[in-house]
Simulated assay, not measured.
Amino acid sequence: MSDELPRAHGAPVLTARFRASPEDFRVDEIDAFEATGSGEHLLLTLEKRAMNTAFAAKRIAQWAGVPELAIGYAGLKDRHAVTRQRFSVHLPKRVAPDLAALQSEDLHVLESQWHAKKLPRGALAGNRFVLVLRDVQGQRDAIERRVQEIAARGVPNYFGEQRFGRGGDNVANALAMFAGRRMRREQRTMLLSAARSELFNRVLGVRVAADNWDRGLEGEVWMLDGSRSVFGPEPWSDALAARLAAFDIHPSGPLWGAGELRTASTARHVEESALIDDPAPALRAGLEATGLKQERRALRLKPQQLQHRWLQDEVLELQFALPAGAYATVVLRELGDIGNASAAQLPASAGERGEAASD
């Protein structure tokens, strides 16, 4: 995510650092369903420290003596954190290995249940975060006002920096792929997502700069809160105004693909104008050529149950929940300039790469 993207709430009110240790970034998946209690898939709830999802899945496969394809998980979690998430293990004979053999200092089994299906990607309601900011500099009154403003108005629903890879090179690699460079399947999926995210962030950045990211334009396409369902355009009305104010609906932006933009009038002009400058045309053409279809994403994100407390004079703890696909880092960005202290902190044994996916 480019540092040049505008902030919605004004100039930074603090500087700080986070992820000084994995315990400073805690993430718990919010389950979207309950286990069936029967079936051939063992559903495990694990807590892991300084370990990304792919590395954990590999360890589970080794423990169970099954291929990695037999392991399912709903979302990717960064290794620079303490995280709780579900995994499923396909065990056709319904014989579970000794759970104690999977336990270690950095991986704990919290719960195990049988389930009817493999856990698919995206099968979570969201994530709950507990974040600790250290070396906080700024006026406490201004910081607390900003937290209240974020709780009341929400933040722009940018794609976070994780989507763009280390050094932000995923977009450049996507352009190379569209120009003919061969990529592995998993790389291809990641780069297509980065290309879409870049275009979405450009549109959202234009609307943040114009201060209309959380209100409707003429020709707006609306997204229902908590779903991917969209409707519109339709004439502005008191009913739409009430639903917008209640966070029942949100303005939306394009996830680029083949087909016509659904927006009309002013909203469509804004989207098209935001995607004229390089490398947007090449990204648009490349995405259209893959057969991906036009989709939408909400422009506005409201953290749920946002709370804060001062652990020490320069140590601030934040707690909130976000829907699946949203990024905790975009919430932090609206507070100020917060440096990531994790890079030099974690051992390579936890996995060679961090996740290039959402928080």
Rank of each mutant, 00 (worst) to 15 (best):
Thr36Val: 00
Gly37Val: 14
Ser38Phe: 14
Gly39Tyr: 03
Glu40Phe: 02
His41Trp: 04
Leu44Ser: 06
Leu46Ile: 10
Arg49Phe: 02
Ala50Lys: 11
Ala50His: 12
Ala50Asn: 13
Asn52Pro: 03
Thr53Ser: 09
Thr53Glu: 12
Ala54Ser: 12
Phe55Asn: 08
Ala56Thr: 13
Ala57Tyr: 04
Lys58Gln: 15
Lys58Arg: 15
Lys58Ala: 15
Arg59Leu: 05
Gln62Thr: 15
Trp63Leu: 12
Ala64Gly: 04
Ala64Ser: 10
Ala64Glu: 04
Ala64Lys: 02
Gly65Met: 09
Gly65Ser: 11
Gly65Tyr: 14
Val66Asn: 00
Val66Ile: 07
Pro67Gly: 01
Ala70His: 08
Ile71Thr: 08
Gly72Glu: 09
Tyr73Asp: 10
Tyr73His: 14
Ala74Cys: 04
Ala74Phe: 07
Ala74Pro: 03
Gly75Asp: 11
Leu76Arg: 09
Lys77Leu: 04
Lys77Met: 09
His80Phe: 03
His80Asn: 10
His80Pro: 01
Ala81Thr: 07
Arg84Trp: 02
Arg84Tyr: 00
Arg86Gly: 10
Arg86Ile: 10
Ser88Ala: 02
Val89Ile: 14
His90Ser: 09
His90Pro: 08
Leu91Gln: 07
Leu91His: 08
Pro92His: 00
Val95Met: 10
Pro97Thr: 10
Asp98Tyr: 02
Leu99Pro: 14
Leu99Cys: 06
Leu99Ala: 14
Ala100Trp: 03
Ala100Gly: 03
Ala101His: 11
Ala101Arg: 12
Ala101Gln: 13
Leu102Val: 00
Leu102Ile: 00
Gln103Trp: 12
Leu107Ile: 12
His108Leu: 13
Val109Cys: 09
Leu110Trp: 11
Leu110Gly: 07
Glu111Ser: 03
